[in-house]
Nucleic acid binder design. Structure first.
Lengths: 301, 301
DNA sequence: CGTTTCGTTGAACTGCGTCAAGTATCGTGG
DNA sequence: CCACGATACTTGACGCAGTTCAACGAAACG
């Protein structure tokens, strides 16, 4: 297309990096370790099984329980609301296949996409507590989800504390992702946000084997992307163009290819800590095995 | 239109549309009064006890365990880092008294405050999983916190599933707050964000008896507020001025008084769902008592 | 009491939003 | 096979909300 500046500083200045005050500016080094963790589990495993399995070795009886949870499978077409802001929660759902988005809307229609729901993610696990949803979940592709009643979660907490812990930690990871997006919306420019999101998605999808060679399907319109990044559609489009013209990414329909991951991550100020967090968590097994509490009776009295 | 609107539409259009240009006459009063740092404290219950107690009736043995958790109390002066992004997690901490903030920083120093930590809130409960922190926590006031080693969390999951569930749900509530702030940063104007945050804080503080008659202490500089709302200091200041000139709030040092809650909530597009969520959660007791799983042995094998 | 830190305000600038209009692309019915 | 909306993607022109720069007063602090 049009000849544009090449590589290096193609994007011009990213922002005034200097901030006069603020005690926080420690240097952080690469943290390049820890690459060794293998994540792929048995192919037969269900998404939830696989997700929790990344935190600890699932035991047989736990395996059985999880399998039972994911017994009822339902499919939904794209653009279906699985949950609607302001309405009651239904069953708990585990995304098995496909994409969805979690989003919130203002009364006047402005909308914010909070997060993307990928295979293995859970929807509405806390419905026992908040019976009315404060957000919506809408499918982006055709999906297949497993449904089960919320009481099963309580049962899980009672009978399988290790799974409960894994679940809680999975929730914490999600919160960390949302917090990182908050940092994006609050303090990153449009270009930085966009770059950051692309890198994040690439990482998350790589973990679940949905991306390879920096290439993945992004089943999302630019409008939705804009709603995720707090931008207007027009500016979203222009920002993507800048990334394309800079040669960092390629777009063909819903296929996106990351050509220069290093630079994209650098533009997005992608933090290696964050990376570590969304990729390979510490294993819980030994923590559990070490700790006393083995008199495992739930009620002492 | 009148060039100096009263009440009602004093702020002009909130989003799109033209802003009636021209200087807004401002009566600036500077009454600076003694800074009382009043802070109601619980007569008997510890903050954690009280927090989890809002989800379910704490039993005696659970009470004992919680009390033990909060045995080691440590005080810290204002502006102390309790946790530093990029460093290892230490003990788990429960905020007993005072304010802190959770924040993340970009390498170049730009900073985003993710949330404010109030009495009863927990810091670093998931350190078992992520041994390196992706965010910092810094005190805003003098605080008193309870410390305990992370293994106690594991123990709690193993021995007290009801508490574990309450803890998980408390975490979910926090995530909901962060998600709502995400909506603010993504889709609300500066004025709306500010109004929304003030209403949110008023609600949260009222629950723990740290606010009355719409009046509370906000131990925060405008810079920190700006970092929480994704604004520049200058614009933060101007936005607060608009709220003051509109008569919605009053500020004296760190005391803030909400004069017109209704209108403030309306400006901030404060959602009642969200309100419900941060205030009074559903009780878990009966959910637990109903569900089977009473053979409460932790390990079947 | 000097030195920071915090708050405040004017003025100029800019990243991003809004408006408007045009261009693929695709499914659907004729 | 071609019109046909309909939806998504692009791009130019312009305006505004919010940023940056700069400067100063006032409170907090040691």
């Amino acid at each position: 297309m049009a000849d544009r500046p090449q590589k290096a500083e193609w994007f011009g200045k990213t922002r005034k990096g200097t901030r006069p005050k603020g005690p926080v500016a420690r240097g952080r080094e690469k943290a390049r370790e820890g690459m060794t963790r293998a994540r792929a589990m048995a192919p037969s495993a269900t998404p939830l099984w696989r997700k929790l399995g990344s935190y600890l070795e699932i035991r047989d009886e736990e395996k059985g329980f999880l399998a039972e949870l994911e017994r009822t499978i339902v499919g939904h077409p794209p653009r279906t609301d699985l949950l609607r802001q302001g309405e009651r929660y239904g069953d708990v759902r585990v995304m098995r296949d496909g994409w969805a988005m979690r989003h919130k809307a203002l009364p006047d229609g402005r909308r914010q996409v909070v997060n993307f729901v990928l295979p293995g993610d859970i929807i509405g696990i806390y419905c026992n507590l908040f019976d009315i949803a404060d957000h919506s979940v809408t499918t982006l592709t055709a999906v297949s989800v497993a449904n089960f009643p919320p009481e099963r979660v309580v049962e899980l907490f009672q009978r399988f504390p290790r799974l409960a812990a894994a679940l809680a930690w999975a929730g914490a990871k999600e919160e960390a992702i949302v917090a990182e997006r908050l940092l994006s919306l609050g303090r990153r420019t449009a270009l930085e946000r966009t770059a950051h999101l692309i890198v994040e998605l690439l990482r998350r999808l790589t973990v679940v084997n949905l991306a390879e060679n920096g290439r993945f399907t992004l089943p999302v319109t630019q409008e939705i992307l804009a709603d995720a990044l707090g931008l207007s559609i027009v500016h979203m489009n222009r920002t993507l163009r800048r990334l394309r013209d800079g040669g960092l990414i390629e777009l063909n329909g819903q296929k996106i290819t990351v050509n220069d991951l290093r630079q994209l991550a650098s533009v997005g100020q992608f933090d290696e800590l964050y990376l570590h967090l969304i990729r390979a968590p510490k294993r819980l097994d030994q923590v559990f095995d070490t700790t006393r509490g083995d008199r495992g009776d739930v009620r002492l009295a």
